[in-house]
Nucleic acid binder design. Structure first.
Lengths: 311, 311
DNA sequence: TGAATCCTATAACGCGTAGTTATCATAAGG
DNA sequence: CCTTATGATAACTACGCGTTATAGGATTCA
């Protein structure tokens, strides 16, 4: 019934003492004030302004409105300012999730960039496998996820539906074969997957295990998986001891280097796409957008050549 | 930029959890909410609502608006309620001024009536001669004045311009000739003003003095005014002691009765009109209107026959 | 007293906001 | 898989809320 504009007008009249002055102070024309007052009087059913000769004077009811104007308008201003702070990146909160090996360099660098450029933006970060982070994103417990997708592996495959999300490519990570330093293939330039039929395998995370199975399946056999662990330091150790070989993304190899392990390209070449995932809505939230931009910049600075945008 | 309606919508969305439910709770249609949110997002330049599958969830900025809605809206409601209280006569203040002899019965009765019917309305009352009360009315220091006008005396006469006011007739008060009980005319049914040429006169208030001068002037002489006092009790005393005669309104005679004074009609008949005066604006203020109505009722109950409305 | 000036009120008009209904597209759930 | 619930969009309407132009009073000053 009574709106903020009405209160602003009443306060201006109280302060300025005339319609004309009030109009001037609000940037309106004089008749606008006349009409606004009339509207307010019609709505409230009471006289608000006493037109006395040259000037005007507020009635009791009018004074009441003018008196309430201050608190209401300043509360509105406060709300507006707070939203503007978020929109202007002087404030904001982003909940970021990334898979463990992305945490090593990609994410820390991006966090530092955001903090440097927008000190008001706070980012809460937690590690999670793609499966979990996408679930969190879907559940609204996360604003931005850094995940990966194996090439060839169809994005969705039922469990991870990327349909409602927008994905931004960050890095293309080549998957290499890791063998002991003294392995017969250690010096090879390239190795065919089919040639590894009789090797003993070490698998990483469930997702990577699936990838291995798919690669072997394509080559026409089922790999002999002797060890499984999500700890890639352990994987490297196992390989170094000659207990097996493994397919490991280049990015991980760079992080957990082991001098007794050699890495070599495979045929067919296999890649892991590292992407940032969010929703169309969240992508437009300034703080989220800034973090996403920082991730892209971080990826470009750190390493390879991102491929073209997707979806 | 941000208005109360927007805050109300954001709060409803936060409370209800969906656009449809929010629309229902506000009595709007669902698209109205959709559009309102879009407008707000355009104005703030930020995403306020995250459309997640079936339902929606507020972003940080949206939550900020929803959080501010409470204080702002309740402040608005408070203002509205306060104005409604004044409009509904559950509250209100009236500054009433009346000339002294009206204070005796007319005003007290009216005050009692208002108090009985509208306990929330408080009336502040002070005595003042018509000249003062009208000046106060013009200066905005008074909402309602009870004044009088002598018949024949032109209302305005330069000094008391009733143009910007509205006057409501309350009583018609006949002006009588007051003489000592043992005066030669004391038993007369009627007395001609012209026959009083050689009397010694006692004048009341300045205004009444003016009236006396006009009556005498019409009759063709200048009265011999021996005493002047605004205190009508004193006037009666002077008359009773045989020190002179006076023209006194009937209403005053009823109030300050003196058994040694006789009152008789004069020719030409002269009347004093007692009126309530206010401004067109103030007349529409509920508390003022109620007081004015009470004055009219009080006048009708107490005495004579009010004449028809004026201006 | 009359002219000048400063107010407010009113009329006529235009535009944008904010509703409506109707229809479509998409998730969620049995 | 089909139903159902929910949000988005389009097209339309209306009126709230500004504008300019002009008229009507009130106050001041010569």
């Amino acid at each position: 019934m009574i709106d903020a504009a009405g209160l602003r007008v009443m306060r201006a009249i109280a302060d300025e003492g005339s319609f004309t002055a009030a109009a001037l102070s609000l940037g309106y024309s004089q008749p606008a004030i006349s009409q606004m007052v009339r509207r307010l009087e019609a709505r409230t059913g009471t006289t608000l302004v006493e037109r006395v000769g040259r000037s005007v004077r507020l009635t009791e009811a009018g004074a009441v409105l003018a008196r309430h104007a201050g608190p209401v308008l300043s509360a509105l201003d406060a709300a507006e300012e707070e939203v503007a702070a978020i929109a202007g990146l002087r404030s904001g909160r982003v909940r970021l999730m990334a898979f463990p090996s992305a945490s090593a360099t990609l994410v820390p660098k991006a966090l530092a960039m955001v903090k440097a450029e927008h000190p008001g933006v706070t980012i809460t970060f937690s590690e999670a496998e793609p499966r979990e982070s996408l679930a969190a994103l879907r559940a609204g417990e996360c604003d931005l996820a850094v995940a990966f997708v194996y090439e060839g592996t169809d994005l969705g495959r039922g469990e991870e539906d990327l349909d409602p999300f927008v994905t931004t490519p960050l890095l293309d990570d080549e998957v290499l074969l890791a063998v002991p330093h003294d392995h017969e293939l250690a010096q090879a330039k390239n190795v065919d997957m089919a040639a590894l039929k009789d090797e003993t395998w070490i698998a990483g995370c469930p997702r990577c295990r699936g990838h291995l199975l798919q690669l072997a399946s394509t080559a026409g056999y089922v790999p002999d998986i002797a060890y499984e662990t999500e700890d890639y330091v352990a994987v490297m150790g196992l390989i170094a001891e000659g207990l097996g070989v493994a397919v490991i993304p280049d990015l991980i190899l760079k992080t957990v280097h082991h001098e007794d392990v050699a890495a070599l390209p495979m045929t067919p070449a296999s890649r892991r796409h590292i992407v940032a995932v969010t929703t169309p809505d969240l992508q437009r939230v300034p703080a989220v957008k800034a973090t996403l931009d920082a991730l892209v910049a971080s990826a470009q600075a750190s390493n390879s050549k991102p491929s073209k945008a997707k979806r």
